[in-house]
Simulated scan of single mutants.
Amino acid sequence: MEIVCIDKQTFDELRARFCKLEEKMAGVCRPMEDSGLKNGIDNQEVCGILRISKKTLQVYRDKGILPFSRIKHKIFFKPEDVQKLLESNYHPLKRKS
């Protein structure tokens, strides 16, 4: 093993650089924070929520009724978009007087 002597100023500079490097590496290695992406729901879940078939859901996508995101062949929907669709098509019960 070889021992190298350096002056205090050089040592402090090296230490500061290593600390910066450590912070950068911690940022890179840290798991991604939730950016709302975990909340995406897939075709099957939306069909269950709306009680519709996959074909009907495809028609909703094709007509622009329900916004979606596609990653390769997987389609995702935002829960708030599904909720908005439900609310915009809500028809309250009219009571006869």
Rank of each mutant, 00 (worst) to 15 (best):
L66P: 04
K20R: 10
R15D: 08
L37E: 14
V4H: 07
S88E: 13
K72G: 13
L21D: 13
F18E: 11
N89I: 02
Q83D: 14
R30L: 09
N39F: 04
P31W: 01
L85P: 00
L93G: 00
M25Q: 14
L93M: 08
D42L: 08
L66I: 10
N89A: 03
R15P: 01
V28D: 02
R30M: 03
I49E: 01
D62F: 12
R70V: 04
C29L: 15
L86M: 15
H91R: 15
C5Y: 10
F11A: 15
V82Y: 06
L57P: 00
D34M: 13
K20L: 15
G36A: 05
F11S: 13
Y60K: 02
K74W: 03
K54P: 00
E22H: 06
G48F: 01
P79W: 05
L21P: 00
V82G: 04
D7F: 03
K84G: 04
V28L: 15
N39L: 07
C29P: 00
K74Y: 11
L85M: 14
K63N: 08
S53F: 02
T56N: 07
Q44I: 07
F68K: 01
I3C: 02
F68L: 05
I41E: 01
R51V: 07
K94N: 10
E2S: 11
Q9V: 10
I65S: 05
A26N: 11
M1F: 06
T10S: 09
K72T: 14
E13V: 06
L21Y: 05
E2W: 03
V46S: 00
L66M: 04
N39M: 02
K94M: 13
